[in-house]
Amino acid sequence: MVGRFDFTVIFSNLDILWNGMLITLLLTVVAIVGGILLGTILALMRLSRFKLPAYAAGRFVDAFRATPLILVIFWFYFAVPIVTGRPIGGLYSVLIAFTLFESAYYCEIIRAGIQSIRLPQVHAGLALGLTRWQATRHVVLPQAFRNMVPLLLTQAIVLFQDTSLVYVVGLKDFLTAADLVATRDNRVVEMYLTAAVVYLVICSLGSLWVRRLQRQYAI
């Protein structure tokens, strides 16, 4: 039965697959960095004393969390060229979509992390003469992020898997590259199995690492 399959197709197409993996990694990194930055701002807005930013951030997060990622990808893929009036290419629309989508999920993680910090810490900071912003910046956030590291990384692994969904707009990430080779060379079984194994290995190593960090970072 194994004889029917020819796994050498992987080696003759390594460069295509590698280029796809680079796109996947680029998407993941940009969405993590952008998502955490924007997510932090959103979380601070949600927890702010002022009603309007809290409300706006809350609705933003709810909207993205209730919508499937594929629909969000389609939204930006079709809508951004119309709004800007010129084609910007699949890559940029997908980068925007992923960053905004992930920021909603990161916001919830970061908000929970901030809320886990005890209030006396803030009071002590204020009593020492720090402004509210300084107390947030130098007392609350450093401790909150330390608690959050495992959760942020787990979300990063989920995100790494989710980037495969750019397949729906034909952006050449790792999975789409594997799919192109599969249909071109008629090696569907081999290529999909390879893709599965690559994702499995990377994500398993990632979650092992997160579990180790979790033990180290526990306060």
Partner: peptide, 16 residues
């Protein structure tokens, strides 16, 4: 099942 993207699993069930 956790460490393979859902889309890849879809393809595996449907094509492989």
């Amino acid at each position: 099942f956790r460490n393979i993207p859902l889309l890849v699993q879809m393809f595996l069930w449907f094509y492989v």
